[in-house]
Amino acid sequence: MRVLLVEDEVRLADNLAAALRDSSGFAVDCAPDGLAGDDLAGNRCYDLIVLDLMLPKLDGLSLLRRLRARQDPTPVLILTAREGKENIVQLLNAGADDYLAKPFDLGELIARAKALIRRGKGAAHPMLTALDLEVNTLEQSVRRNGVLVDLSPTEYRILEYLIHHPRKIFSKRELLEHLYDYNWEHHSNVIEAHVSNLRKKLDAALPGADPIIETMRGRGYRLASEAERAEIQGQERS
């Protein structure tokens, strides 16, 4: 998951970025002012935008309105030091998804960030399942058929991203965009290697099964159509 953090207070931005990276393995980009934030958000590669309200050059509310005006559905978590209900109502009406008042609890911020990302992808619960695959986004643990699969952080992040949209094909570029911030060197080979490792580890947990991650040649990856099968089975059962 990739998060855009628009916050002009450098130390706070550093801490938040570190916390989001450390705790959830998110890729985090920081923008020091509203215009920079607007520029970065224009890339449409973020799963969440954490937005401070008092920003130089372009304030948070205006940035939010710009985002929503160009139909950007990215969840937005507002950080505000201002109090008052009107303000919050105005924010939510302008298209904010959630807000946190400063000084906030870091744990709460992380939890809300995760929840917003989840919601943004249509999942209501931190436990994500796809057929025999079970991903606990809180513990960052993965089980296949009840068997714990030990994944590297990057492998986990790839799986978490894929499992949010079973059946959807993700290009390498998209995976790169959503899993790495700008501090990383972009190499699609990196993704290939990680996906290959991930597939091996997952398949090892349930020998004899079909490969769970399918490679669509020239198009990208998707979580195996087992999901489709599951759906068909489900329909048959009912």
């Binding site: 207070e9 130390r11 706070l12 801490n15 938040l16 916390a19 008092m54 030091a81 008042a101 400063k102 000084p103 906030f104 609890d105 870091l106």
Partner: peptide
């Protein structure tokens, strides 16, 4: 002040 406190707290 809240921002400054937020920095300390988050640190």
């Amino acid at each position: 002040l809240k921002t400054a406190v937020a920095v300390v707290k988050s640190s």
